[in-house]
Design a binder for these strands. Sequence first.
DNA 1: TGATTGTTTGCTCCA
DNA 2: CAAACAATCA
Length: 785
Amino acid sequence: MEFLKGLNAQQREAVTHTEGPLLILAGAGSGKTRVITHRIAHIICSKHVAPSAILAVTFTNKAAGEMRERVAGLLENEGLDSQPTVSTFHSFCVRLLRRDGDGLARIRPGFTRRFSIYDDDDQLLIIKAAYRSLGLDEKDFLQYRAALSRISHTKNLKQTPQDLYRTATSKEQERLAALFEAYEKALHMANALDFDDLLLEAVRLLEHDEATREAWNRRLSYVMIDEYQDTNRCQYELMCLLSQSHQNVCVVGDEDQSIYSWRGADIRNILDFERDFPKAKIIRLEQNYRSTKNILSAAGAVVENNKARKGKKLWTESEAGDLLGLYPAFDAENEALFIADSIDKQLASHPDDAIAVLYRTNFQSRQLEEALRRYGRKYNIVGGFSFYQRAEIKDTIAYLRLSVSTADSVSLLRVINTPARGIGRTTVEQIEAQAREKGISLWAAIEQTIDGHQLSTRSQSSLVTFRNVIQELALVASAEPLPDLIKFLLDRTGYRKMLEQEKTPEAEARQENLDELITAATEAVERGETVWEFLDHAALVAEADAYDEKAAVTLMTLHNAKGLEFPVVFIAGMELGLFPHSRSMNSEEMLEEERRLCYVGMTRAQKRLILSWAKYRRRFGGGEQERSTPSWFLSEIPENLLVNLGPQEDTGEVDLTAERYDARQSARRNTYTGKAYNSLENITQFFSERGIAFNPPKPAPPPRPQPRQAPVIPPRPSLPAKPLPPPAAPPRRITRAGMTVEHPKYGKGTVVRREGDGENAKITVNFPQHGLKKLVEKYAGLKRD
DNA sequence: TGATTGTTTGCTCCA
DNA sequence: CAAACAATCA
C-alpha cells in the first residue's frame, strides 16, 4: 500500500491497526500527524470505508484545517465524493447541538437550537451580575475568576447546585452553591451555553436521545483523537458515546505534553486507557525526527524529573548539533534586545529559518515586540488581543446575536447603551430588578417596562428607540444576507457614526476592523455559511488559529506552540515565579505540569534552542525592578549541553548597564503608546505620521565572543532543584523567593518575590488559601517552614 | 445621564 | 502601564 511508504515499523503498525481500541503513545516530533493522516487515508482506501464514516478530532481549528488538507492531498487521486469529518471537540458539539439538539429542551429548561455561546468575557459579566444579585463582594469572597473556575470544575464533575448545597459544610460552600445556581439560571434564561456546556450538553443529549445516539453510531465507524493527553472527562465520555457500537477508537497522545489540566484535562484518560479498554493495542512512537541530539537530551533531562509519567525514551538518528544557548540578561528589555539581535544574525545567515519566540505569559510579548520593531523585523503574534476580542467586533457581534436571539442578555447589556442613547445605570438596574423579580429575560422585562409606562418619559423614549432598533434588526436578519445585515446594523444603531465622530486614529482603526468583519461575513456567506455558523465561528476561533506560518518570526505563548515546530526557538523569561509560574509553585502536580510545558517548548526546536532569563524584571509597568532567580528548569539541563551567550558574570553587569542606558534612550525616542499594531507597515506609518524616521537601530546588545568553552551556568538557584521542601542556607535574610514560610494567620505559603532590603523588605507570599499577599517582613511574623 | 477626571488594581495558560 | 472602577461635575 503506498500510504505505508516512508513510515517506520511502529508508524506502519499504527496505520494498519485499524480495528478496535488503539493507543498511540507518540513522543514529541515522532511523526504523529503523519500517522493520523495516513491512517485515515489507509482506512478509506484499503477498507473501502466512506470518508464520512470517519471522525478525527484535533485540538485547534487550525490543526483541523491542516489535517483536512493533508488528508485531501493524500486522497487527491481517489475520486472520492465526501471528506472525513475533522474538527475540534467544541466545533463538533456545536454542530451536533444545532442540528440534533431539540431533544435537549426536555432536560434543559429554555433550550432551543438557537442558543448563544458565551466566552469567558461573557461569563465574567454573568458572574458579576450573580455577585450583585446575591449581595456578595469580590473582596470578601472568591475572586470572580476563581469562582468561575470552581463552578466550571463542579460542572465538569456533573454536579448541580443542589448537590453542592447538600454537601456544603461551610458558609463559603453554601455561597458558592448559590452563586453556581444564579450563574446557571442566568445562562438558561439567556438560552446560552458556556464552553463547558457545549461538551456537557452534547454528552447529555447523546445519553438521553437514543435516536440521535444511534444515528451517529450508525454513521461513524472510526473515531480518532489527537492530543489525547489534554482531553477532559467529558470529551472522553463523548468519545465513548460516539463509538459505542464499533469501539474503533484511536487516540494519540503523549503524557509528557499534557499542559491543560487547569482547563480540566484529565491525564488519567491517557494513563488509564488500557484499563478502560482492556482489549486496547498500544503502540509507542519513540523515534524523533525533529530535533538534534542535544536538544532532545536536554528536554529529556528536564522532563525526567517528573514522577507522574509512564516513562519513555525518545531517540534520534540526527547529529548532536549546536549546544543550547543560555543568556542571562540584565533585565527584560535587554533580554528582548538580545533576542531581536540574535534573530537578526540568524536570519542574515539562514534567511529561510522560521523562528519562534516562546514565553509563559502573554504580557511578556510586549517588550519582545518593541525590540523586534526597533530592529525593523516583521513578526507574527499569536494571541494577546485577537480580532474577535476587540471591543468594536464584540459590540457588532452582540448586535448580531441579539438580532437572532433576543434572550441573549449579556449581548443586550453590552450594547443597550453603545452608542450612548440615554439608557443609564439606573434604568438598566430597574430593568434587571424587574427581570429578576418576575423570572423573565431582560428583553421581556424591557417590553413590560415600556408597556407599563413605569419610567420617566425620557428613559421611556430611549428604551423604545432601543427596542425598535433591535426589532428592526431581527426583521432585516431574517430577510437580508449577512454582510448587508451588518452594514445596516452599523448604520441603524449609529455605531459607525459614533466612530466617525471620534476622529482619532484609534477610531479609524476600529472602522477598518469593522470593514474586515464585513469582508469575513461576505466570505462566510460565499462558503454557504448561515448567520449561526458565522457566529459560532467567531466564538470558537482559537488564539492558535491565527498563526501564519509565512512570517519569519512568530511570538506566542508556550501553550500556543503545542503541535508546532521551528528550526530556531527562543524561550524567554526562564525565571522563578514566571516560569514556573508563581501560581503553579505550590504543589508538586502543578510544578510537574509547568515542567511538561517546558518540555513542550524545548521540543519545538529543530536545530537551535536559546533560553534566556532576566536578572531584574519589572512586575508591573511602573514599579521597581525586582531581582529574579533563574528557573529550576535551567539547572535541570546538563551543563555540558549549554553554552553561555552572555558576558562573563564578573564584568557583565557594567556593560549591560551601559547598554541598557543606550537602549533606553533609543527606546524613549521610538516608543509610542498607542495600541499594539502588529505589522511593520503600521509601525512605519506611525513613525512617518510623527515625522520620525524609523530606522532599525544598530544592533544593540553586544553578546561578545566566548573566550573559553566552559559555559557559565546561571547562578545556581541556592534552592534545591526540587521545590518542596525548600532551602537550607539563607544567609541573613529571613526569606527568599521560592521559600515556604508560615504566617500566623494565613498559614503556609511560598515566597514569590522580595523587594527592598533589611528588615523593611516587602515580600510577596502566595498562600494557597488566600492568594497573593504583600507583607512587610518585620511585621509579618513569618516563620521559616 | 454622561463625560471627565481620579484612583486603584492587576499577570496565567485557552476552546 | 493600562484597563476597570469610583467619584465628581455639567
